[in-house]
């Protein structure tokens, strides 16, 4: 039985804004490698390169609350991998495990073939992983430009004395940082608010600035925790367009968390569904749409799903 359309009320929101994609890219920023099998169902997983990220038997609990139970997940290069599930299903916990904010009680995280019991957060940017947060985690006291520029802080090699005196490699570094931040701002259509304090922007724009801060590092793996939560339908479709455009431009692999089933259907290649910390389905959007356990998990929360305000 297919999902009743009310539960998928925001399906059309995933159609991405064409003007975003049509925008020309400077050749220096063109992706080196386009993902080959875009749009193709991942039935031919065997032919795909080894996973960029894989989770094996992840378990995590807080006191008596089981947030994640024996979760496996593999993410292949170039795909948009959605993780959906009702509130409290463990989606954010999963991203926190991948980014080292939480240490799992059990299981391994394999990044690029290296296995971690606890992902080293401090090294995350160097490993090519960037993320956004479900609840905004911007630096309120910094301008939009400086917030985005801070996404390149992990690369800075000049020391404070060089920066203060403007000598050594600090000048070139500063110029490079700001110009790359400016390019991302332009890409995400944020140039107009470049010098505003980030806290003064409307919520939807702040979400986009956070995406910009993650993207500026040109990560190989981008973890997005409900980038469209609390947005209007048109904001959601715009954001979906940006996510897709970012993937095409930087050849980034995306793990996209959504509370809202509809949004991800048209956007993702494969969808994992969590419910009470367990993975209850992991398949293509079409298969997930028709999966009885998914329908059961979602029907119970269909009404609070409508506005997509999963916090």
């Amino acid at each position: 039985m297919p999902l009743p359309s009310s539960a998928l009320g925001v399906m059309e929101a995933s159609a991405y804004a064409p003007e975003v994609l049509a925008r020309g890219l400077p050749s220096s920023l063109r992706p080196q490698q386009q993902s080959e099998d875009r749009g193709e169902p991942t039935g031919s997983v065997a032919g795909v390169a080894s996973p960029l990220l894989s989770l094996q038997g992840i378990g995590l609990s807080f006191g008596g609350v089981v947030a994640l139970a024996d979760v496996d997940l593999s993410v292949h290069p170039g795909e948009i991998r959605a993780i959906i599930g009702p509130n409290g299903a463990g989606k954010s916990s999963l991203i926190n495990v991948i980014s080292g904010v939480y240490q799992p009680d059990r299981g391994q995280v394999l990044l690029d073939g290296i296995s971690y019991a606890h992902v080293p957060t401090q090294r995350l940017a160097h490993l090519g992983v960037a993320r956004t947060f479900q609840n905004l985690a911007l630096f309120k006291g910094l301008s939009v430009l400086d917030n985005v520029a801070s996404g390149l802080a992990y690369k800075v090699r000049s020391n404070f004395a060089g920066q203060v005196l403007g000598i050594g490699r600090s000048r070139g570094e500063q110029r490079d940082t700001l110009s790359r931040a400016d390019q991302i701002l332009e890409f995400l259509d944020l140039s107009a608010v470049r010098d505003r304090l980030v806290g003064t922007l409307p919520y939807g724009l702040q979400k986009r600035v956070e995406l910009a801060r993650a993207l500026v590092a040109e990560p190989r793996l981008l973890l997005l925790d409900e980038p469209m939560a609390g947005m209007t339908a048109s904001e959601k479709s715009e954001m979906a367009g940006f996510v897709r455009a970012a993937l095409d431009r930087f050849a980034t692999t995306v793990v996209l968390i959504e509370h809202d089933v509809g949004v991800v259907m048209g956007l993702s290649d494969r969808i994992a569904v969590l419910d009470y910390g367990r993975k209850i389905a992991d398949a293509t959007p079409d298969e997930v749409r028709n999966d009885q356990r998914v329908i059961d998990a979602y029907l119970g929360v269909a009404s609070d799903n409508e506005d997509g305000a999963g916090i």
Binding site: R123, A125, R131, F133, Y154, A214
Partner: peptide, 8 residues
């Protein structure tokens, strides 16, 4: 936390 994650 965000500062640590972006590699500061």
């Amino acid at each position: 936390t965000a500062a640590r994650i972006i590699g500061i």
